[in-house]
Structure formats: structure tokens, C-alpha cells
Design a protein around this nucleic acid. Structure first.
Length: 183
DNA sequence: TCATTGATGGTCT
DNA sequence: GACCATCAATGAG
């Protein structure tokens, strides 16, 4: 299993969010790799997207989002949960895709149907903020035997404060998948 | 089954 | 000091 190339991430964020569905997230902190199939994502388009953290501008927290594509953006939310994003598009564009749910494939314990639970099950925390996804220990890979599926597009979760941007259908998930956080 | 709420701390104003 | 890209527990219906 090999990491997807950086060119995969250096594209339109909606395209990346949709194409991440069905791919495998791989994290190998020690011993055997922990693998989950990505079944739910959300696109955050950049500083103009009022739901995106980068709409606050370039700060310590959003620094990674403003960086080059193919890196992990990990942040703490509500004081207790980590969320994992992948940075997309060219450096400075400040867009990313939030990984919201996984279908367990290997070495995962606990629930994975939500961005906080996903990180807990994988063992991902803020130490991985800024981590290159073209690395040996954390990356996304093409599954060995891809399955067919249909994609559902819905408004993003928990961004009601973002006005019209909250209504945009920038949440994507695999139709009928049992591990989607809120079908 | 659905709506409400508490936990808990980093980030921004 | 307010807000928050969440989750689990609670209680009403």
C-alpha cells in the first residue's frame, strides 16, 4: 500500500472530498498499521468559506491550512476531541477536507462514526498536525479491491453559524454505509 | 426517538 | 469572556 501522490490533493477541494470516499486511511504509530476506509468527508473551501477555520485568516492554528497540499491539519474541538483534515489545493489557498467517518478495515477498536471518534480509534492527536501525508506512517491509499458506491451530498454538520455557507452541500458520504455518522 | 445538556480547553476578540 | 467542524448521557413523549 502506497500513499496517494501529492497531485491527488492539489486539486479542487470538492473533487478531493468526493474522491477520498472509498480510500483507505493508514496510520502506523507502532507495530501493525491501523486502517480504515473513508466513508464520510466534508469540504472546507478556503478563507471565503465562512464555515472554514481559514476564514479567520492566517493564525497559529490555521497555519497548516494555508500550507501546501497533502498535509494533515489536526485540531482540538470542544476541549476533548481531535479532528483530522487533509489540506488541499495550492499553498496559500487554505482549503481542506475533514474526514468524518471510517469503516474499520484493520487494527481499529472502538467506534469510528464521527470525526472525534475516528481520531480516537486511529490514535491521532495534535502531534500529527502538519504531518506530511506522503510519509511512511500516515497516509491515504487506494484500496486493493475498490467497491462500487454512490455518493450522497448534504449540508455540513455543526456549521449553522456560517450563514448561506451552512446550506451548501459540501458533506459527502457513501450511500447506505453503516458507519456514516448521521445518514 | 428526539431534544437538551454537560464535559472541557484551545483559540480568538 | 465567548465560541466551538463533538460525543454521551439524560429525560420527556
Amino acid at each position: 500500500m502506497r500513499p496517494l501522490p501529492r497531485s491527488f490533493y492539489d486539486r479542487d477541494t470538492v473533487v478531493v472530498a468526493r474522491e477520498l470516499l472509498g480510500k483507505n486511511l493508514v496510520f502506523t504509530p507502532d507495530g501493525g498499521p491501523r486502517i480504515g476506509r473513508i466513508v464520510e468527508t466534508e469540504a472546507y473551501l478556503g478563507p471565503h468559506d465562512l464555515a472554514a477555520h481559514s476564514s479567520k485568516g492566517l493564525t497559529d492554528r490555521t497555519r497548516i491550512m494555508f500550507g501546501p497540499p497533502g498535509h494533515a491539519y489536526v485540531y482540538l474541538i470542544y476541549g476533548m476531541h481531535y479532528c483530522l483534515n487533509v489540506v488541499t489545493e495550492r499553498e496559500g489557498h487554505a482549503s481542506a477536507v475533514l474526514l468524518r467517518a471510517l469503516e474499520p478495515v484493520q487494527n481499529l477498536s472502538g467506534r469510528t462514526c464521527g470525526p472525534g471518534l475516528l481520531c480516537k480509534a486511529m490514535g491521532i492527536d495534535k502531534r500529527l498536525n502538519g504531518h506530511d501525508l506522503l510519509s511512511d506512517d500516515l497516509f491515504v491509499a487506494e484500496p486493493s479491491s475498490p467497491e462500487c458506491f454512490r455518493i450522497v451530498a448534504r449540508p455540513r454538520i455543526g456549521v449553522d453559524y456560517a450563514g448561506a455557507w451552512a446550506k451548501r452541500r459540501l458533506r459527502f458520504y457513501i450511500r447506505g454505509n453503516a458507519f456514516v455518522s448521521r445518514p
